[in-house]
């Protein structure tokens, strides 16, 4: 997978933070964790972990909605010129 020229992580982090500020998270999500590292094939990436609020159990409909939200968020980051590939996951807050 080819990536565009990679900029310092700080610049990509600013793009992520800016979009997070502009975006209303689904009500089930408490916050988003970010991690900048390479993916398993060595491509620079950012991992966005959407943390569920405690004791939330999503039914199918809600799961679909949250999953699509996460995808849309990542694809918006790519449209905004993020140089690292954004991987999303949903996780239970520890």
């Amino acid at each position: 997978m080819e990536t565009s020229s990679i900029v310092p992580a700080q610049q990509d982090e600013e793009k992520v933070d800016e979009l997070l500020r502009e975006t209303t998270l689904p009500p089930e999500i408490a916050f988003v964790l970010k991690e900048f590292k390479e993916d398993h094939s060595g491509v620079p990436a950012v991992y966005l972990s959407f943390q569920l609020k405690p004791h939330i159990v999503l039914d199918r409909q809600a799961l679909t909605r949250v999953s699509r939200f996460m995808t849309a968020f990542a694809r918006t980051l790519l449209d905004h010129g993020l140089s690292r590939f954004p991987y999303v996951s949903l996780n239970e807050a520890e």
Binding site: M1, H40, R60, T64, S67, S89, L90, N91
Partner: peptide, 29 residues
Amino acid sequence: IVLQEARHSADYDLNSRWDRARAKEDVER
């Protein structure tokens, strides 16, 4: 792309904890 990376972590990265929300979202994806 996301699922391929998730599969790699699920199969090989034993430092990470896999939770049900993550697994269910991957299946939903």
